[in-house]
């Protein structure tokens, strides 16, 4: 079974990397999801694979009878799932704003913040804070 898990991990990582390398901004989001799942699965399999023995203390006992699935990676993954969900939504919001502001979905069009400032200047200034930051950085020089 370890072999099968390794195959899944490899596929998830490989596919996610391929998507992250695309120029389409939407594919970036999909790549992020795959990457999160791949990482979780890697940690899960690294903890050791034990089937059907959740780390629960049965009624009447005081410790978990061995063998049991490793609870530590599970705790790690549990929060990781929720966090990567939060990060994903954040990324989607970011992508959405960028698209609205710059009217492009091509990552190669987003090369510099300076240019971002210019473009926003033209497109009804929705990202004023970023423009202000670059401005004040210039003053400081």
């Amino acid at each position: 079974m370890e072999l099968l898990f390794a195959l899944m991990v490899g596929t998830l990582y490989g596919c996610s990397l391929y998507l992250l390398l695309r120029r389409s901004i939407v594919k970036l989001a999909v790549g992020l999801i795959l990457l999160g799942n791949g990482a979780n699965l890697l940690i899960f399999s690294a903890g050791g694979l034990i089937r059907g023995r959740p780390p629960l203390v049965p009624e009447g006992a005081t410790t978990v009878p061995a063998p049991y699935a490793d609870p530590l990676p599970q705790a790690l993954i549990l929060t990781a799932i929720v966090i990567s969900f939060g990060v994903l939504v954040f990324a989607v919001a970011l992508i959405y704003r960028t698209y609205r502001a710059l009217s492009t979905d091509d990552l190669d069009d987003l090369t510099t913040t300076d240019r971002l400032g210019e473009v926003t200047e033209a497109a009804h200034r929705p990202l004023v804070p970023i423009a202000t930051i670059t401005q004040s950085a210039d003053d400081g020089r």
Binding site: F5, L7, G10, G14, C15, Y18, L21, S45, G48
Partner: peptide, 20 residues
């Protein structure tokens, strides 16, 4: 990119296996 992704995927698969 597919080549790079494949290499990366293979490495991670190997890593996941060797971890055991």
């Amino acid at each position: 990119d597919a080549l790079l992704a494949t290499a990366f995927g293979l490495m991670m698969a190997g890593f996941a296996l060797l971890i055991h």
